[in-house]
Design a protein around this nucleic acid. Structure first.
Length: 677
DNA sequence: ACCGCGACTTGTGGATATGGTA
DNA sequence: TACCATATCCACAAGTCGCGGT
């Protein structure tokens, strides 16, 4: 790492998982199901008037009943192995019921507390049929490269490049003001790629003598020009583009229209790895139809493409998978790029629901799970002890599993791949974690742990199970890996894996915090929606900290805060003026007095509220500057918790979920207000 | 009993749309 | 009514995890 200066801002971890050595009380199995769960209390208190503009999708009607009821309760097996989607009545394609605002198709799934039996709905696991018919238009290719003819300099002299070479030079030139330019690995990888494109015996012999400034300038000029196009022209261009893209945006699954996620083929460019990625700067080749495998229903028209001489790499009809197309990544031979349906699709909704139901299932077992791994801390079997400690970290700190990685990937770790130097022991049974996790985001945290864990760690850091000394770079847990751990978890619960703990802990934390909030505010003065939203964010923040979802402080943050302060200044001056005025009026006499005093009074009140609101925002902004709330909202916190809370507290759901989240969580909207995770 | 493959979720930052403000 | 900074969207990288082949 370079200067620790702009290192990831260290999130205030103080609040992180209580230093308590004992696992959390596991939410005493939330009474959760107050028998009288307001039956059909559709009492949607929140202002969330149902008139959502309706996202193109789902016009599938069907009485929401049927789909659920049957499949729901008896879920277990037989054909119910089919993902939910499958079981939905599919509407005849044509019948795009324009009018009929469809209710969300997904009915309640409150699996009242316990026993939701084995089969999760929608779990797209192995071999299950995901669709009967599938129709789509394939993928959209990026435009071919258009040479600009701007010459770069080599050793001070202009060089003529072939279009192909120029394209690569341009990829590089354009990155002039990024700090990749300072990274030796990036430069080396780029040069290797560039050299190859140049061919042997080219005048360009070394990157040092290359000057791409002219191309960079050209690029900037282009950008500027684009910005200055007239509004009408811009609109026209956009409209054009939208029309060209329209057909790629939708796929028909069993006749139902579903949004396609990323239908665009990735354009060529230089690979930008995160952190110190060994492959940064490599050329990401252009992808052609011959590289792409299409998955589509039998008998459906094969998608077209703009390369007359070519054919798709393959046309498949695999009903057990949800992808529409894929190609091999050109950077890493073992990676694939997929085209999937969008987040609002039925496939995704089903698996989202399944994910949370699985986590809730874990909730019912968590007390035992904890008892078990705590017992393992004392085992005479070293491996068991290590696993027990790892499980503790995973559960308590919501660490990721951490699979083994290759040399040619960024050097990051998860729980199972922690190295001895990632964990420091401090007095008072305190453990200090410091490592780079996913995306090379630094995880830094000091936690007090159970003494037995502490003792174990002392040993794990020092020697391996054969008694051999460990050194930096050695695994903290050398006796097992993520796979082994997951295998063990399968014995505890069907479908259980490490990541489920992250989901579980995020969701249960939100649930707990929100309900504590409600308990403490019960009967208290009516709060503004703004205040409630801020309070929700506080809970959200705690979850984000648990999951280590950081963000870099926005560049403009300081600036913005100053502006807010100024605004506050102005407001309070105005307030002062009003108050003076009022005083003056009250002193004076005469007719209009009463009226103008009243009016002043109300203006003063308004002003005070405005001030309060700005202050609130200022505090919240400052408080959240290093925390990314979005990630947990999108991926970890069961949306039903939030929606139910909104209903109970008269907060319009739109205050918490933006448009795309509303779409993504459509499946959860009908949740009972009494829902508890 | 691995281990690479394949498919799907999670994650961040950059690009762009948008809505409040001068 | 253009600006302008933020809020949202999007691209695509980087994880997780089960499976099937050897």
């Amino acid at each position: 790492m370079s200067d620790s200066e702009d290192d990831i801002p260290l999130v205030q971890r103080a609040a992180a998982p209580s230093a308590k050595s004992t696992p959390k009380p596991a939410a005493a199995k939330a009474a959760a199901k107050p028998a009288a769960a307001q039956p059909q209390s559709r009492a949607r208190t929140n202002g969330a008037s149902k008139k959502k503009p309706e996202t193109e999708d789902e016009d599938d009607d069907e009485e929401s009943e049927e789909a659920s009821s049957s499949s729901e309760s008896e879920d277990e097996d037989s054909e119910s192995d089919l993902p939910l989607a499958k079981r939905r009545k599919s509407k005849s394609p044509g019948a795009a019921s324009t009018g009929a605002k469809r209710k969300r198709a997904t009915p309640q799934r409150e699996s009242e507390g316990a026993k939701r039996s084995k089969r999760e709905p929608g779990s797209s696991k192995s071999g299950q049929v995901m669709w009967k018919t599938l129709r789509h238009c394939g993928v959209l290719f990026p435009p071919e490269y258009e040479p600009h003819g701007v010459k770069m300099l080599y050793d001070g002299k202009p060089v003529t490049l072939t279009p192909e070479q120029e394209e690569v030079a341009t990829m590089f030139a354009v990155m002039k003001d990024t700090d990749y330019m300072k990274k030796p690995v990036f430069l080396k990888n780029f040069w290797e790629g560039f050299k190859e494109v140049l061919g042997k015996n080219h005048v360009i012999k070394t990157l040092d003598k290359c000057d791409f400034t002219s191309i960079y300038d050209w690029h900037m000029a282009q950008r500027e020009a684009k910005k200055n196009v007239s509004k009408e022209e811009k609109d026209r261009i956009k409209k054009d583009k939208d029309e060209k893209e329209a057909k790629y945006k939708v796929a028909y699954v069993d006749g139902r229209p579903e949004p396609v996620g990323n239908f665009r083929v990735e354009p060529p460019g230089l690979f930008r790895g995160r952190g110190e990625h060994p492959k940064m700067g490599k050329i990401k080749r252009r992808v052609y139809p011959r590289d792409i495998t299409i998955n589509i229903g039998e008998g459906e028209p094969v998608p077209e493409h703009p390369y007359p001489g070519q054919t798709w790499k393959e046309i498949k009809h695999d009903h057990t998978v949800t992808w529409l197309a894929y190609w091999k990544d050109t950077i890493s031979s073992k990676d694939y790029k997929y085209v999937f349906l969008g987040a609002t699709s039925t496939f995704k909704a089903d698996s989202d629901l399944a994910k949370y139901e699985k986590a809730r299932k874990l909730k019912d077992l968590i007390v035992d799970v904890r008892k078990n791994y705590e017992r393992d801390w004392e085992s005479s079997d070293n491996k068991k002890r290590q696993m027990g400690v790892a499980m503790y970290f995973i559960d308590k700190l919501a660490l990721r599993a951490g699979h083994e990685k290759d040399e040619d990937e960024a050097d990051t770790v998860g729980c199972c791949t922690l190295k001895v130097e990632n964990v420091d022991l401090e007095p008072g049974n305190k453990v200090k974690f410091d490592f780079l996790g996913k995306d090379s985001i630094r995880y830094e945290n000091v936690v007090e742990v159970h003494p037995t864990v502490y003792k174990n760690l002392e040993r794990f850091r020092r020697i391996d199970s054969t008694g051999k000394k460990k050194k930096p770079g050695d695994q903290l847990f050398e006796t097992f890996d993520a796979q082994d751990l997951n295998k063990e978890l399968k014995n505890i619960m069907d479908g259980l894996s490490v990541k489920v703990f992250r989901t579980y802990n995020a969701s249960i934390t939100l649930d707990r915090l929100l309900s504590e909030w409600e308990a403490s505010k019960k009967g208290a003065d009516v709060q503004s929606v703004d205040q409630k939203k801020v309070d929700y964010d506080v809970a959200n923040k705690e979850v984000a900290i648990l999951c280590n979802h950081q963000r870099s402080v926005p560049k403009t943050h300081t600036n913005q805060m100053e502006k807010i302060q100024e605004k506050l200044q102005a407001l309070s001056t105005e307030l002062k003026e009003l108050e003076d005025e009022l005083a003056a009026v009250q002193k004076g006499k005469g007719e209009g007095k009463k009226a103008s005093a009243d009016s002043l009074l109300s203006r003063i009140e308004k002003k005070k509220q405005a001030i309060f609101k700005v202050e609130l925002q200022a505090r919240s902004k400052e408080d959240l500057k290093t925390v990314a709330l979005g990630t947990s909202k999108i991926n970890y916190m069961d949306p039903r918790i939030t929606i139910a809370w909104c209903k109970r507290n008269e907060v319009p759901i739109e205050k918490i979920f933006n448009k795309s989240l509303l779409g993504k969580f459509n499946w959860a909207m009908d949740v009972e207000p009494s829902f508890r995770f």
